[in-house]
């Protein structure tokens, strides 16, 4: 198990190094001189040259990369070219707000998704199962921004229960803070519920038909124990991997949802930095997302190994 964890950790580090090169490479290819962008189009060539020297833009690319990447390792993420503030604190605020949003959504997706999947599997072939299937099919079909629009129409325009956008810090009152979280959370949950519930359902159906479940029932165990202790443990295996992927998708989903609801998190920071050509902020944000994504995948692999003895004790793992 230790060897397995070490290998996986090493792999995550390698992937992140490669991603950092990709992020750096793509944004270096950007047409239009960064110094020009900062100074505006009326800058004299001398001014541009001075700023280029100051920002180190005349150095070879590998040196620029090294400066940027080593800064990252020491916690110096650079300075936002647009806001003229260090990126670190800016990003930290955005991440904490985004994690509140994704955390709440993820929790609900796991609970509701597993619940729906289990219920559908137990009732499989009956009307309730079909209803859940159709509902989840709709969930996949509608893009997040359309779910967002529907949530706004129903809860903000129609019922008037929720604010249609914005964010309030906890300091302005827990109730107010939570109220602004609900609409984006509902949107994310609706769009991502389907994967978990459909997969749970199909793996539950498969497991429930296996001989060891029949044996457990034949022993006279109560159905609740059979379902929750015997069947669910095995049925969860494929679901765990999908959950990690879903967490990654949630990190992608926040871009759209935060934009629609004007929620000042990581996703909105990324869009904002693209619109304003704030390249250092964009690079740092995307790298952070990749890191969170990679860690989620790592965590899923470890959970998978924990539950699956074949990997836990296997020697040929990778």
């Amino acid at each position: 198990m230790t060897a397995y964890i070490t290998r996986r950790l090493l792999f995550v580090v390698l992937v992140l190094v490669a991603v950092s090169m990709l992020v750096f490479g793509i944004t270096v290819l950007l047409p239009g001189n960064v110094a020009y962008l900062i100074l505006g189009q009326f800058a004299t060539p001398e001014q541009v040259h001075v700023l280029e020297l100051k920002l180190g833009l005349t150095d070879p690319v590998w040196l620029q990369y090294w400066r940027w990447a080593s800064g990252f390792l020491t916690g110096d993420l650079g300075v936002s070219t647009l806001m003229d503030r260090p990126i670190g604190p800016l990003l930290a605020d955005a991440i904490s707000r985004s994690l509140m949003l994704t955390g709440a959504s993820f929790f609900l997706i796991v609970v509701i998704g597993l619940g729906l999947g289990i219920v559908a599997a137990l009732r499989h072939g009956r009307p309730l199962d079909h209803g859940i299937s159709i509902g989840t099919y709709l969930g996949i079909a509608a893009p997040e921004f359309f779910w967002a629009i529907i949530v706004i129409i129903v809860f903000a325009a129609w019922l008037g229960w929720l604010p249609s956008s914005g964010y309030e810090p906890i300091s302005s009152g827990v109730g107010n803070w939570a109220l602004h979280l609900i609409a984006p959370t509902i949107t994310l949950v609706l769009g991502h519920l389907a994967h978990v519930s459909r997969l749970t359902r199909s793996s539950m159906i498969e497991v429930l038909e296996s001989p060891y479940i029949t044996a457990a029932r034949a022993k006279g165990l109560p159905e609740r124990v059979v379902v929750l202790h015997h069947a669910l443990r095995n049925a969860l295996l494929p679901t765990i991997t999908v959950l990690a992927l879903d967490f990654g998708r949630l990190m992608g989903g926040i871009v759209v949802v935060e934009t629609v609801f004007a929620y000042p998190g990581l996703g909105r920071l990324i869009i904002f930095s693209i619109q304003n050509r704030d390249i250092p902020t964009l690079q740092a944000s995307i790298l952070v997302v990749a890191a969170i994504y990679a860690l989620a995948n790592l965590f899923a692999d470890l959970l998978y190994a924990r539950f699956n003895p074949k990997i836990r004790y296997g020697r040929n793992v990778g």
Partner: peptide
């Protein structure tokens, strides 16, 4: 490496 970043990003 390409799959290490969410598709939309």
């Amino acid at each position: 490496v390409l799959m290490a970043i969410p598709a939309i990003m």
